[in-house]
């Protein structure tokens, strides 16, 4: 079984004339087959955690560790991390003009699988995966994310998830900007991926509504750049009722 361990992770970003620490010591262990939800108010550092795991150059890890099955992730390049089995579904997927979705998907699958998928089987596989997510087949000929609506971009992220089958997927606010139907379709896609084997999910969200579709095993509350409380799904219910006030106010009252 795979394990993703995050140990005392500190991450800074460059700001005018210096650096600012965003993550202040994150500890988290996810095992294959588990789904962890990270919930927190805006600005608590949730997305920074997602990008730090994926290796975005803007985020500098100043101390701490990320281990995938005991192997140091932080020394890997962004693409090495992906090939090692990490996947980040981005909150704002990037448009890549000039590169068709078909070409992109095949290049990614070739890189992650270590060999080019057999063309005939590949076309079938992509078609089926697109159909599962209610994506118009014509999208394969369009440039990556170019001119896609927010919901279409999120479907593309989950499409990539289903084709690349990572060991661990980080979903960064994949639910934001989705209408009810799109949320259902995207959630079903994530659930299919979860059923596919011993895969772990780190679900980052601001809202509890996606948790009605994707049931987490563990819920973490994120505030001030670290996990401040962990619990079962019932913790999400409490957040739904009372909000994040308890975690963002100073203790003294």
């Amino acid at each position: 079984m795979s394990t993703l361990e995050i140990k005392d992770l500190h991450v800074s970003i460059a700001v005018d004339g210096g650096t600012k620490e965003i993550l202040t010591g994150v500890n988290l262990t996810i095992r294959g087959g588990e789904t962890h939800a990270i919930m927190g108010p805006n600005g608590s550092g949730k997305s920074t955690l997602a990008y730090a795991i994926a290796g975005h150059p803007k985020y500098e890890v100043t101390s701490g560790e990320i281990l995938l099955d005991g192997v140091d992730v932080l020394s890997m390049t962004v693409d090495e991390r992906a090939r090692a089995g990490l996947f980040l579904a981005m909150q704002y997927p990037v448009e890549v003009p000039g590169v068709s979705t078909a070409n992109f998907l095949r290049s990614a699958a070739t890189a992650v699988r270590g060999e080019a998928p057999k063309l005939r089987l590949w076309v079938k596989e992509v078609k089926a995966a697109m159909s599962d997510l209610d994506i118009d087949p014509a999208f394969v000929d369009r440039n990556v994310n170019e001119g896609f609506s927010g919901g279409e971009k999120k479907r593309q992220e989950v499409l990539q998830l289903s084709l690349l089958k990572p060991k661990f997927a980080v979903l960064d606010e994949t639910d934001s900007g989705l209408d009810v139907d799109a949320l259902r379709v995207v959630s079903e896609g994530v659930n299919r991926y979860r059923e596919g084997g011993e895969t772990g999910v780190l679900l980052i969200t601001h809202y509890t509504r996606i948790l009605q579709h994707i049931t987490p095993d563990v819920v973490h509350v994120f505030a001030g750049g670290k996990v401040v409380e962990s619990g079962g799904p019932e913790l999400a219910d409490e957040l739904e009722k009372n909000g994040y006030v308890r975690f963002t106010q100073p203790a003294a009252v």
């Binding site: 994926a54 290796g55 390049t77 962004v78 980040l88 890549v96 590169v99 290049s107 690349l164």
Partner: peptide, 26 residues
């Protein structure tokens, strides 16, 4: 830009292949 490069790399595509992909597509 760096964001496009990051996006392609985050899907396992090495940097040189990512650049080729973009130029060939262009």
């Amino acid at each position: 830009d760096d964001e496009q490069l990051f996006y392609l790399q985050s899907r396992g595509i090495p940097e040189d292949a990512a650049r080729r992909l973009v130029v060939r597509g262009f």
